[in-house]
């Protein structure tokens, strides 16, 4: 026996799983970890939250299907917020890279899916006709971008770190620095909007929007860690943010509920 010979290994451990689309129903959403519609600590939710129970639907063809997007929908600078609105220079702020994978609950990368993101500038001001915060607009920063995941579900973009800002909820409410994310997945029932926060931000535990999340682990998973290994030396720090969409069964169960 040659001690130098490599041990037999399951070759699948080295090979990425080929992505075969599934088209069964989605896993039931665990609403116990999501913020409830009615969350009085976030005052805007009080008048905007349905009070009747949601009607639970097994995934039908209307939910399993959803829109597809391609590179034709995007422009070459769409994932570079440092350049995509620059007029006479780079925007002010800490240069960062945000990267990660869009996965489903079974751990598979979600390929070719559209990820959109938007944020305030380094001073905490949004480029929006309705934002009147006293911090200045940055003439070189739009604050939005988008990317398609690759065939492993990976995405990345470059931006400046957004600043925290005050908002009208309690008299002294501040949003922690955050980036909004919109993600599609393969079926319309996977549609998700969320927010990414930054490791170490002391505003996270006192944010009235974040504290609507009833599950500590779920809240922690919205916080992106600093990822020094992915930083660009003498240029940009990096943060890692993976997003998990609902998992999907491989087999469609043609149930006919009673009465139908």
């Amino acid at each position: 026996m040659n001690a130098q010979a490599p041990a037999l290994r399951d070759p699948r451990l080295n090979a990425p799983e080929p992505f075969t689309p599934r088209d069964g129903g989605f896993f039931q959403r665990d609403r116990a970890i999501h913020p409830p519609a009615y969350a009085p600590g976030y005052k805007s939710s009080v008048l905007r939250s349905p009070r009747q129970p949601l009607l639970s639907l097994e995934s039908s063809v209307s939910e399993i299907t959803g829109p597809a997007f391609g590179h034709n929908d995007l422009g070459p600078l769409d994932n570079d917020l440092i350049r995509n609105y620059a007029k006479d220079g780079d925007p002010v702020g800490e240069r960062i890279i945000v990267h990660g994978r869009v996965l489903d609950e079974t751990g598979r990368g979600v390929p070719n899916t559209l990820v959109e993101f938007w944020q305030a500038n380094a001073g905490g001001r949004y480029r929006h006709r309705k934002d009147t915060y006293l911090a200045p607009i940055d003439p070189n920063f739009g604050g939005c971008g988008r990317a398609l995941t690759d065939d492993t579900g990976y995405y990345y973009f470059r931006t400046v770190k957004p600043g925290p800002y005050p908002w009208r909820n309690f008299v002294n409410s501040w949003r922690p620095a955050h980036i909004h994310f919109s993600v599609f997945g393969s079926g319309f029932a996977q549609r998700l909007i969320t927010q990414m926060y930054f490791e170490g931000d002391p505003l996270i535990p006192v944010c009235p929007i974040l504290t609507t999340i009833p599950d500590k682990g779920a809240l922690d998973r919205l916080v992106a860690p600093l990822d020094l290994n992915a930083s660009t030396p003498f240029d940009s720090l990096a943060y890692r943010f993976d997003i998990v969409l609902r998992g999907q069964r491989s087999t469609y169960f043609e149930n006919r509920p009673e009465g139908n």
Binding site: H128, I193, T194, I209, L222, L245
Partner: peptide
């Protein structure tokens, strides 16, 4: 199994990311 990333409100400035012309 992984757990689904939880939702957060789209906020008042959702137009910036999704319909920037409406943001101005």
């Amino acid at each position: 199994y992984l757990k689904e990333t939880v939702s957060q409100t789209a906020g008042p400035y959702v137009h910036i990311g999704l319909i920037p012309a409406m943001a101005g």
